[in-house]
Write a protein that binds this DNA or RNA. Sequence first.
DNA 1: AAATGTAGTTCCATTATACGGAATTTGATT
DNA 2: AATCAAATTCCGTATAATGGAACTACATTT
Lengths: 278, 278
Amino acid sequence: MDQVEDSADKGGAGADEGEPTHSRIDTGTLGKAIAVLDIVASADQPMRFTDILALSDQPRGTLHRQLSNLVEEGLLSLGRDHSYSVGIRLLKFAARAWAGNQFRVIAEPHLRALHDLTGETVHLGVLRGNEVIYLDKVESRQAVRMYSQIGNASPVYCTGVGKAGLSALPDADLRTVVATIKFRRFTDSTLTTPDALLKEIEVIRASGNAYDREEHEPGIRCVAAPIYSADRSFVGGLSVTGPAYRISMELLESWAVLVRNAAGAIMDDMGARLGPRT
Amino acid sequence: MDQVEDSADKGGAGADEGEPTHSRIDTGTLGKAIAVLDIVASADQPMRFTDILALSDQPRGTLHRQLSNLVEEGLLSLGRDHSYSVGIRLLKFAARAWAGNQFRVIAEPHLRALHDLTGETVHLGVLRGNEVIYLDKVESRQAVRMYSQIGNASPVYCTGVGKAGLSALPDADLRTVVATIKFRRFTDSTLTTPDALLKEIEVIRASGNAYDREEHEPGIRCVAAPIYSADRSFVGGLSVTGPAYRISMELLESWAVLVRNAAGAIMDDMGARLGPRT
DNA sequence: AAATGTAGTTCCATTATACGGAATTTGATT
DNA sequence: AATCAAATTCCGTATAATGGAACTACATTT
């Protein structure tokens, strides 16, 4: 009952995942099956066989068997209109992943404390390739639905948690990850080039805080700070987010130290609970 | 963008899953890998290699490779103390599964309406083997944490939604599922024999409502009603749950018709949105 | 209603991949 | 430092995945 997440890299097949850090080991049949699962999961509508065939590089017969196996296992669901979507068995697995995640458990009280201090929404996330996956969220008005953010994968280059995480990576890994990013402009402020991003990472490294200046969603800004293990095999971050009309950049900047402190406290607790060194 | 879940059966390896309905197709390498994943997910603590080896029927070398592949894919996470736990990549998949689940989307407004009428917590779940997996939850006081129930797998035989779902199964499937149940006594009221359960199913079929009379958790009772597709390839249910000290059985019974109506309305919407017949 | 085209599914000889017993390394324990 | 147990790697063999082609079912058109 002590471990956080290790680096765990994986390149999505059709989509836009990254392969950071190490060399990439062949996962054979399983890898191909999960790549197919990822294609379906990355689409925002149920896909028909031919759609998947176009994104996959598998021949018809092979793909069909892979899909059938995934359906049989409950990882995919096949509708009567022959459309595939992600299966509910994954909910069961995810519920366990969430409840058992030590990083999340350790961080939780600190997220609450930070929320109490600022009154705004607090997010916790980890880096996975060139995406950040949100592990937890604390907010007052429970307007937004449950899975709204938890489990959601967002780009690293235009989120506070993402950029904070990147700033904690060793240069080699950072470059590897950045190379896999397919930049897309979400708002006027979105950084859209590797250079602009790397330049900003330098600033974040110096200050210890990352900002999202309405780069992902218009009207939404946040301050974030990185959280990482000593050997950087695990990298994540936390952030305080709010609407631009209520949260000025000045106010946000006044919270920066609180966010850094919370991140520090979480890392201290991790060190204490997970034993010293790698 | 129209399909619900198909029956999707799968027998867990070490644990206690069932294999209902159809014959069971071989899923080869993928199936073995997911069985290993299921072992880890079914434990409530991170497991070490030897622990998994004992529950798996794979030889050492094979199991080790399967675990390595799962870790490489991000489906498992390997701690520095050599313990395996479920990986956060599954959160991403689950978030998609949840957001894209048409059954849940269709049911949601009806859950809210039922909550408004009763003031108590409303649950939505689907049958998977001999377990019910909760897909959604509506409650007023947001005291309980997000994943607290969603994605959670509970036994069919001692939950309202579970028994309601069973009552909608064709007899053959019902017997198959019941045969896989490993009865465990949670409270004084828990049904602990196939006969007692089957007898209760008859009552539920006649009345259209299932009750949980503190059978799973002491002090918690609920009324439920089944939801199913015309061909019973999909079976689930919804329920209103409350604490025994506040919710008398009489009050619960007065809600029975509301729950049935909500279930009926959801089935109507499903029929309308998913097209007629199988 | 029959015909045409497209999407989905099955088949099976070939080949690549998973298998698994045994040897090796790692690391904890006294 | 020595001992033991747990985790990991190795590699010849057996099995399961592969993928092109043939087939079936469904939808759309005349």
